[in-house]
Nucleic acid binder design. Structure first.
Length: 93
DNA sequence: CATGAGCGC
């Protein structure tokens, strides 16, 4: 499964809206929109998990397209440092 | 009541 970084999202966008949008180009495994926990405002970007084929397809299909009035940014997501669990070991994931 | 970089606790 590949993680997709979705940026330049409109503040009106929601996880279900993003899921529906990506669902049109492939099977969406999971959608996680990121909101600023410091101020409580949505940062305007999120992450979408899909299979590698569907992820690349949706990325190429939705990247650079207009979504809710904003130019959608879709790219491969970087690996998050740490996370809920401590990932220090040769056996990641 | 709001805002706009870009990579999530």
């Amino acid at each position: 499964m590949t993680k997709l970084y979705v940026g330049n999202l409109p503040f009106s966008a929601t996880d279900e809206s993003v899921r529906a949008l990506f669902s049109n180009h492939g099977t969406v495994e999971k959608v996680s929109l990121i909101n600023d926990r410091d101020t409580g405002r949505p940062r305007g970007f999120g992450f979408v998990e899909m299979s590698s084929a569907d992820a690349a397809r949706a990325m190429a299909a939705l990247n650079g397209t207009d979504f809710e009035g904003r130019t959608l940014r879709v790219n491969e997501a970087q690996e998050r440092s740490g996370g809920g669990g401590f990932r220090s070991g040769p056996r990641g994931r």
